[in-house]
């Protein structure tokens, strides 16, 4: 799909963002990759240009920084390129009880998950309007449908993304811009997350997906103008069950989860690697 337009992916150096970059590259899309400063982004860009016949531009930007959306937009206009697909993928998860979480971390999480997605979308809508058919893919989470202890803020930010996307979709439809929201369950996104995923219950482990399976599914959904994209059959079953199970049973399940979580505390070692050996 060579269009002369570029696809912008945030959080592209690792996990799902990297998988989006590979999938888009395989579909012959030219890319603008945004990620935290570091060698990974340049390495990824070199690799993609070597293995696919596409153009890759990179922008090193911490999305929690002030006016990061403007900075990114300005760099894109300076480079004189046009975007027709915006993938708001960057996000920060959390795995602690609310009380135990560092407030600076929470603020950073809200800035990345909510503020940067909103501002970036706001900045790019005029450009997307003139480049239709255009696409916005916001990465939400299955967590936005459930009450999940230790993911309070994360789930909250993703609920914002979910409803923001649905309303925006209604607004932008007339301009030939499709807005989709992706709601994946657990993903083996990066080594720390994989270690954490391994410590989950058997049912959560069964529903785990790899980034390279989620990304193509999500892009197919986006290009077919789907409103809500939920990868994984089991995840779709969870969602259906959630809608039919009575509230008092759900409350019992959550209570049970909390008691379990208190027993198994993950140990985070210095470099951010999470070690949780009690269950693997």
């Amino acid at each position: 799909m060579k269009t002369g337009y570029f696809t912008l992916i945030t959080g592209a150096s690792e996990g799902l963002g990297k998988a989006f970059a590979f999938e888009c590259a395989a579909r012959n899309m030219d890319l603008v990759l945004v990620a935290l400063p570091g060698p990974e982004l340049q390495n990824l860009s070199n690799y993609l240009e070597r293995n696919f016949s596409i153009k890759v531009l990179i922008i090193e930007q911490d999305l929690s920084a002030d006016s990061s959306a403007e900075l990114i937009y300005n760099k894109i206009t300076e480079m004189n390129i046009e975007i027709n697909i915006l993938i708001n993928n960057a996000g920060l998860g959390n795995t602690r009880f609310f009380e135990d979480e560092n407030r600076k971390f929470i603020e950073r999480q809200i800035r990345i998950n909510v503020l940067s997605t909103t501002s970036l979308t706001h900045m790019f809508v005029p450009m997307l309007k003139r480049n239709g058919p255009a696409y916005i893919l916001n990465v939400g989470s299955l967590a936005c449908f459930f009450a999940i202890p230790k993911k309070q803020v994360y789930g909250g930010t993703k609920s914002f993304i979910y409803f923001f996307s649905k309303s925006l979709r209604a607004e932008l439809k007339q301009y030939n811009i499709n807005v989709s929201v992706l709601c994946p369950g657990g993903i083996n996104s990066n080594p720390a997350q994989i270690m954490l995923n391994k410590s989950g219950t058997w049912i959560s482990k069964m529903s785990l997906m790899n980034t390279e399976d989620v990304a193509p599914f999500a892009l197919n959904g986006l290009l077919r103008n789907k409103e809500v994209i939920i990868p994984g059959k089991l995840n779709r079953v969870f969602l259906m069950l959630d809608r039919v199970i009575p509230v008092f049973i759900k409350n019992e399940i959550i209570k049970h989860q909390i008691s379990q979580l208190k027993i198994y505390q993950p140990v985070v070692i210095a470099n951010g690697t999470i070690k949780e050996m009690s269950r693997i």
Partner: peptide
């Protein structure tokens, strides 16, 4: 040496060696 991994870590050997490399860097 600088190329990114294109698939998720799908087995414990690969993952354990990767985490060990991180420790060596540290």
């Amino acid at each position: 040496e600088t190329d990114p991994r294109i698939t998720s870590f799908n087995n414990d050997y690969d993952l354990s060696k990767f985490i060990a490399e991180k420790a060596v860097h540290e």
